[in-house]
């Protein structure tokens, strides 16, 4: 066979298997490419217009042009919108497609019957979601620039921060979904009672300090809050101590490591029956 000996082929799969899984995910994403494109362009337009222009007019009229944090409301809210876009991609790609692969249309078992390992399946999913998230956030950033929502050039670093937040949260979602043997509404509950509150109360639309102290833990636990706070430093120079910025990177990074590790463990356990 021209592709080399079976052993050579197997060692190629040992090295590149994760990419082959990602290839599969991209091919599947092509089947809903329209949705991805429409939401990728539509969401930033709608949100930036509604909040950054509509709501911002009201806020800025009442509080002045340096309304929140010393900047206008548009500049204040834009980093949060970018983070939310990453979270949205994560909550789409790390839930139902995982349920699908393990249960509804068990393609993960098919991959595993070929030389692909359970860890490579998880890695491949992460790679493909990271790519979609990068494209979505990159596009979002362009719209932010067009709306004048970014003050400093360093704002472009908000894109990797959003990716870190999205993947950190998403890895946990993926690990959890990998343990579900049946979806009796858990995922829908998660969307409603975890993801939605998180996007509202993570210092996104108003500073966390506006919440009573007994609710502020929501922000500290939320990877979105950490990402958004850091993004504000990058985008318009919000002031915070350096150690806090370090925490803003370390915390989502830890979630990503733990979630990824757990997801691999659960996938191994589930596929090795």
């Amino acid at each position: 066979m021209s592709a080399g000996t079976p052993t050579a082929r197997a060692s190629r799969v040992r090295r590149f298997g994760s990419w082959y899984v990602a290839e599969h995910r991209f091919r599947v994403m092509r089947s809903y490419a329209q949705t991805i494109t429409v939401t990728g362009i539509g969401n930033p337009l709608i949100y930036l217009y509604a909040l950054g222009v509509g709501l911002a007019t009201l806020v800025d009229q009442n509080l002045g042009p340096d309304a929140v944090n010393g900047v206008g409301y548009l500049q204040f809210v834009a980093p949060a919108l970018l983070g939310m876009a990453a979270i949205t991609v994560a909550s789409e790609e790390f839930t139902y497609p995982i349920m699908l692969g393990f249960k509804w249309n068990p393609t993960f078992y098919g991959m595993n019957a070929a030389p692909i390992s359970p860890a490579q399946i998880i890695n491949g999913v992460v790679i493909s979601v990271a790519a979609r998230m990068f494209a979505t956030c990159g596009l979002y950033y362009v719209f932010m620039l067009l709306f004048g929502a970014v003050v400093r050039p360093a704002g472009v670093l908000m894109i990797p921060v959003a990716l870190l937040v999205g993947l950190g949260f998403g890895a946990l979602l993926m690990a959890y979904t990998a343990t579900l043997t049946e979806d009796t509404g858990q995922l829908a509950m998660l969307m409603r009672f975890v993801i939605l509150p998180m996007t509202l109360f993570s210092g996104t639309f108003f500073p966390l300090s506006q919440l009573p102290i007994f609710l502020q833990w929501i922000g500290w636990l939320s990877p979105l809050w950490h990402g958004v706070e850091l993004s504000r430093v990058l985008s318009y120079g919000a002031v915070e101590p350096l150690w806090l910025s370090v925490v803003h990177v370390a915390y989502p990074a830890c979630l990503l490591a733990v979630g990824w590790w757990l997801a691999v463990r659960f996938a191994k356990r589930r596929l090795n029956k």
Partner: peptide, 10 residues
Amino acid sequence: LVYGRYFGLP
């Protein structure tokens, strides 16, 4: 096509 890729085939 997709399945063949899992074997590292060109």
